[in-house]
């Protein structure tokens, strides 16, 4: 395989994993209107849980249970879902901005645990030498990459199909009813808080699953893979594609990941060595601008439901 082709497969695999996180966020924000400012936290919980469960036993670390990868995936979903449940239980009966603050805190706290709880997470060194699924079947990097890419696509497709079904179900209609009008939904005899909690937990679980997929792909996790900016890259992917649209989420993931890696490559070539750190700031500013400008001028994104990002409230 040529270098470019190999890079393309890597690029698309990561974009696919991000698209899965975007699906989780879409359930929370696009379909339910729940703000999550700590996406990276749920993703990291999934990645680390998977790493601890499948990793080899090491004397200086807790964990290393050597479970098969499927077990790691399941554990990742459960752990991230549980974290989502705790945040949801504390904040969802309160005003919406408290959820934003609390999830922001989760994002930061998870990163602190990743850095500091060395006995569990390997600290700044991370957890390395993790078994990668399909590796033994293939034994060749190029083949592994292709197989894993296909695997991510299959998972993405399954989640897509499941979510499409879910949002057409009565439960999905209830979600949208709650997003549009809390009072009306309550008058149907449904508890909005309960449905919101369910939605938030499902979304968090999906983010956790994406984390497990990342662990399985790279075979190594460390705190620098889960920097706070990732949360807002995911957000940019969601709203650029169009929140409330599953297809939009996938398109947005590709577009923003392309913008991010492309601007990174470009800046590293253009900027003189002493300004490299500053150049990376430009990348983040770009993400900030994309978010703000999309909200201001194209709230529906490229494909999304017209009212999805900004469900207007009657009477202002």
């Amino acid at each position: 395989m040529t270098g470019l082709l190999a890079y393309s497969v890597f690029f698309l695999t990561i974009a696919g994993i991000y698209a899965i996180i975007v699906m989780g966020l879409n359930i929370q924000w696009g379909f339910t209107g729940l703000f999550n400012a700590g996406v990276v936290g749920f993703y990291a919980i999934g990645a680390y849980t998977c790493a601890v469960l499948i990793g080899p036993d090491r004397t200086f670390l807790f964990g290393g249970f050597g479970l098969p990868f499927a077990g790691g995936m399941l554990g990742a979903v459960v752990a991230a879902g549980l974290a989502g449940l705790v945040v949801a239980l504390v904040t969802l009966r309160l005003s919406e901005e408290y959820l934003a603050i609390a999830t922001f805190g989760i994002g930061i706290s998870v990163q602190l645990v990743a850095i500091n709880a060395a006995g569990l997470t390997g600290g700044t060194n991370g957890l390395y030498g993790l078994p990668r699924p399909f590796w033994n079947l293939t034994g060749d990097v190029a083949v592994f990459n292709l197989v894993y890419f296909a695997f991510v696509l299959v998972i993405l497709g399954l989640i897509w199909a499941a979510l499409a079904r879910l949002i057409r179900s009565p439960w999905g209609r209830l979600l949208r009813a709650i997003r549009e009008d809390d009072v009306a939904a309550r008058s149907l005899g449904k508890s909005p808080v309960r449905v919101r909690i369910q939605s938030f937990v499902i979304g968090s679980g999906i983010m956790g699953l994406a984390g497990a997929l990342y662990t399985g792909y790279i075979g190594f996790v460390s705190p620098i893979d889960f920097i706070p900016i990732l949360t807002f890259q995911i957000w940019a992917m969601l709203i650029v594609g169009g929140s409330g649209s599953l297809l939009g989420g996938v398109v947005g993931s590709l577009v923003i990941w392309l913008v991010w890696t492309g601007s990174g490559t470009l800046l590293s070539r253009v900027a003189p060595p002493e300004l490299q750190a500053q150049a990376s700031a430009v990348q983040v500013i770009l993400i900030g601008l994309i978010i703000v400008l999309t909200i201001l001028f194209r709230p529906a994104g490229l494909i999304g439901e017209p009212r999805a990002v900004t469900p207007a409230r009657r009477g202002g």
């Binding site: 919406e96 983040v284 900030g288 469900p311």
Partner: peptide, 26 residues
């Protein structure tokens, strides 16, 4: 303000925060 629900405004403020923080960085 007044056109979108208030949590979208909160979202926009995260975008503004990123821009301000990294402009300072720059």
């Amino acid at each position: 303000r007044g056109k979108v629900n208030h949590i979208t405004l909160v979202f926009a403020s995260f975008g503004v925060a990123l821009i301000v923080r990294y402009v300072i960085h720059l």
